[in-house]
Amino acid sequence: MYGKIHEIYSSISGEGISQGIPTVFVRFAGCSLRCGKTDTKQLWCDTPYALGPNQGESKSFEAIIKEIEGLDKDHGFQILLTGGEPLEGKNREVSTSIAQHIFTYRTREGKPYPAPRVETNGSEKITLDSFFIFTMDYKLPGSGMENRMDLENFQILEKRHNSLDEIKFVVRDRIDFERSIEVIREQKIQTNILYSPVHGEVDAKELVEWIKIDNPPKCRLSLQIHKVLWGNQKGV
């Protein structure tokens, strides 16, 4: 069993409700979405180097687990599967095996963070499996990818009822924010909600004012603290 892996490294979680937690990142290569790119606007993906499947190295499940354990000998870090897209194509099978393996061991041994977190783009089907925690994007109009969203994922999140799951809205402009409010109401979302501004296109302080007025349930502003600490670097 092999997956396309761009990098595996340890750092801290940079955003969301797990922000600041020591984390081992497993970054898969390959994503079929191209967010934000229009005739006049540039791609806004913060990991464009991992979008193509050929930008990763084919690694076996066993090799991936060995690398994770080499970075986290005491099994105390959060494990985060990201991309690219960890649920796309053959990466899904490898992600599932990694999560099952870690969850089984850590549950048996009483280790922290038993279920790996998966950052997924909203176009791939999530699951009810308890060995996953999900950070799921919903792509708003400014991304140009809203028509690729799998709306059944909202029903799955409701059935999961996991207090650690989260939905992320990346906001390009006021139109995006208003659409997010519509989606929250239409889907009756009760999961944790993250709002992140598109860098250079909407001021985070302005986004805060919009959030304060509408105050969606269980929402928070999410800024990427790894970029504050290290800038736009890989492997941090």
Rank of each mutant, 00 (worst) to 15 (best):
N121F: 02
V183C: 05
K37D: 05
V118R: 00
I184A: 02
T107M: 14
V26F: 00
R174H: 10
R160D: 01
W210K: 12
G76I: 15
V202Y: 08
D176A: 11
Q190K: 13
C35P: 05
P114K: 05
K168Q: 02
R34A: 09
F103L: 07
D203R: 14
G30I: 00
I21W: 04
K4Q: 06
A29N: 00
A115T: 07
P53N: 12
R27N: 01
P116R: 00
T120H: 05
L80F: 07
A63M: 11
P53E: 15
R108E: 13
K37C: 07
T135K: 10
Y49W: 12
L207D: 09
A29W: 01
I65G: 03
E57I: 15
Y105N: 10
P112R: 15
F28C: 02
E178G: 11
N91M: 02
K227M: 09
T47P: 01
G235C: 11
T40N: 13
G20D: 09
V183G: 01
K73M: 12
V171C: 09
I181L: 12
K168P: 01
R172E: 12
Q187E: 10
Q55S: 13
S11K: 03
P53R: 12
L223A: 08
I156D: 00
Q100T: 13
K125S: 15
W210Y: 14
G70S: 14
H226M: 09
P86E: 00
K212N: 10
T40S: 14
I225E: 07
Y138I: 03
K66A: 15
T23P: 03
H226A: 09
C45K: 04
D214S: 11
H161W: 06
P112S: 15
D39I: 13
F28A: 03
H199Q: 14
P197Q: 12
Y195I: 07
K59N: 07
G16P: 05
I213P: 05
I156M: 03
L229N: 11
I193A: 04
G83N: 02
R148S: 14
S95A: 14
I181K: 09
R179W: 09
T47M: 01
V94Y: 00
G231P: 10
R117C: 06
I65E: 04
T23L: 04
D74P: 07
G231R: 10
G3S: 12
K218H: 12
Q224R: 08
S222K: 06
E57R: 14
T135H: 09
I17M: 08
N162R: 06
G84D: 01
V171Y: 04
T23H: 02
H75T: 06
R106P: 09
G20W: 07
W230N: 13
K188M: 10
G83V: 01
V202I: 15
Y105E: 12
L194S: 11
A99L: 04
T120D: 04
Q190M: 10
Y113S: 07
L140S: 06
F177L: 06
F169H: 03
V24W: 03
